[in-house]
Structure formats: structure tokens, C-alpha cells
Design a protein around this nucleic acid. Structure first.
Lengths: 162, 162
DNA sequence: CTAGAACGTTAGTCCGACTAACGCAACTGG
DNA sequence: CCAGTTGCGTTAGTCGGACTAACGTTCTAG
């Protein structure tokens, strides 16, 4: 009844959510076959790209919470894909570095993710895929600083300083 | 190192996931202000659109698991937004109907969701929003029947009863 | 030297996606 | 008519991800 039929099917936030849910599920399933999860990939890719880093830096770059990062790094370290050593320059920090095995794993995961991307976005032609990437990039990039609204949300457990 | 820098930042499945995470968070936060969650909205909207239905039908239409639907319906019923009565035609079923209060709530949620949509997709102009909707719709629509493969997967929730 | 912030870590909460099993009603066919 | 099977609602519980709180240690500023 009412005017607004089709509400659910066309609700943009819902479409986004459903599409992502499907994508995530496929990603997780496939990564699991290589004994990995999204976070493992995020960490390995970040280390490979930016070089050795502290856990705090990794957390910022991957958006994995520092508390959750601990377990991820434990797992990666157990598998010899990263090594973690105290930073001589600052004993609070661990310096995390990717290993050769880590790079090998990273390449494997890259392939898996490329395949998943192909599968998940198969319904779109290349132009549409590029479009989608652009649109999502815009959204993700602006997502911290929304349209002029300011409510000082206490980010995590860090005060902004210096 | 390596060729593929920027992997993370441009990984499409990740962009989708991040965008959806942000969107979902905003949706949930705002719906919470009206004492509701996504599922409540999905159920109310579906009932309003298709009329009274059994829980199994609702589950299919909203993609909420039948097991989770129970709690949602309890909550909606507690608030007088739906009523649930045994279907005389088939005593296994409950016939769920939206009430007047339910319609009122639905209108409220519609407004909230429209506002969230505006906020979340603010970085996009109207044409881009429409584009995004189209692309996501394609993805979501094809998501059950991928690239020509059909195998009747054992949907089910039944194990072998003994 | 002392206050506070940054760091890694542990523990724990909350919620959503998903599975298993069960009791009951209903349809199915022998 | 009465088994077997399937559909239905419900309960319970797993698993993983997002997120918070707190703690001991180490660094940094005043």
C-alpha cells in the first residue's frame, strides 16, 4: 500500500550493504583457502608498500584496530610472514617487517583477490567497473570529513596532538 | 617494493566494503534514534508493500534469516507495530500484519533513511548517485545466479533428522 | 622529577551472519 | 489410515568483525 513501493529494492544504502556483503563473503571464503583473512592481506600489502612500520602505523594505514591487530600479527608471525622486533629507537614500539615468505603469500593473495574481483564484478563491463571504482573512491575518501558538519567525535583512544 | 603499489587503496572489493561499512554505521546510528534497526525497517517496508505474510515469506523477501526474524518480530510486536496471529489456513504459519502504528513508524524510518542517504552520498552529485544505484542494482540482482552456473545447492536448514 | 601521552596488549562487549536441532503441522503416497 | 517427509516457527549457539576500557611500560615536556 502507500505510495512508496519498491522502497527496499531501491534503497541505496541497502544496495550498497547487500553488494558489499556478497563481496565480503566471497573474499573471505577465498582468502580462507589460503589460510588468510582480509586483515592479513591488508597488513602484508601495507608492509610491502610502505616498508617496516610500528603497529600503530599499521593500524592507521589498514584501519584495523590496534587491539585486533595484535592477533593478526601473531598469526602472521607464527606463519613466518612477518617478523616483529622491538624498535631500538623507541622501546614502546615493535617494528614489523614483511619476510620473504610474507611476500610470497602476498602474491598468492593478490591473485586470489584478483580472481574474486573478477567474479564479483563480472556483471559489470570494464567501463562500469571503472565507474564503480571511481564512485566508491570518492565516497571512501570523503568519509572522514563530511560536508562541513563538525562534531568532535573522540576518535579512538588518541587525542589529536601535534 | 614490487610493482603493485596502491593495491589496498584501489582494491575494489575493499572500497566496496569500506563504503558499506560507513553507510551501515550511519544507518544504524540513525535508526537507533527511532528505536529501530535495519531489519525492523525491512520487515515493515515489506509488509507495507506486499501485505500480510508468513515469517518464511518475510525471511525470503527481506533476506533476514528465519531464526533472527523471530526476535525482530517480537520487538515489533511489543511495540505494537505488527501483529502476529496463527494462520487459520495453515496452523504452522503465523500471519504477520503491519498495524497503524507500524505504518506511522515506517514513515518515520523512511524519513530518517532519506536523510542518511543524503548524508552518506553527499560527495556524489545526482547523476553519480543514479549511476551508483544502477551499478549496485546490477550487482545485487545477479548475485544469486552468477555467470551461468546453476547448481541446486542444498539451501536448507534441515539436517537429517533421525 | 613528574604528568601525560603514545604504545602494545588483554579482556570483554555488542551485533550481525549463519548453522543445527527440535516440535509441530501438513502434505504425500502407499 | 498412518508412516515419511517437507515446511514452519522457535531456541540455542558459533564465528567473526567492530569497537571500548583499562593496564603496564616507555617516552616526552614542563
Amino acid at each position: 500500500m502507500s505510495d512508496g513501493a519498491e522502497r527496499l529494492r531501491t534503497l541505496r544504502t541497502r544496495l550498497l550493504s547487500l553488494a558489499a556483503m556478497h563481496s565480503d563473503r566471497r573474499v573471505n571464503e577465498q582468502l580462507a583457502r589460503a589460510d588468510a583473512r582480509k586483515w592479513h592481506y591488508a597488513v602484508l600489502a601495507t608492509l610491502d608498500e610502505f616498508g617496516p612500520a610500528s603497529q600503530a602505523q599499521l593500524s592507521d594505514r589498514t584501519r584495523v584496530y590496534r587491539s585486533d591487530l595484535v592477533a593478526v600479527l601473531n598469526e602472521l608471525a607464527d606463519r613466518g610472514q612477518v617478523d616483529r622486533a622491538p624498535d631500538p629507537a623507541d622501546k614502546r614500539r615493535n617494528l614489523v617487517r614483511i619476510t620473504t615468505a610474507g611476500r610470497r603469500q602476498l602474491r598468492r593473495l593478490d591473485k586470489i583477490l584478483a580472481a574474486v574481483d573478477d567474479e564479483v564484478f563480472a556483471p559489470l563491463d570494464p567501463a562500469q567497473r571503472a565507474q564503480l571504482t571511481d564512485l566508491l573512491t570518492i565516497l571512501v575518501d570523503r568519509q572522514g570529513e563530511p560536508h562541513g558538519e563538525r562534531h568532535g567525535e573522540p576518535r579512538n583512544d588518541r587525542g589529536g596532538s601535534s
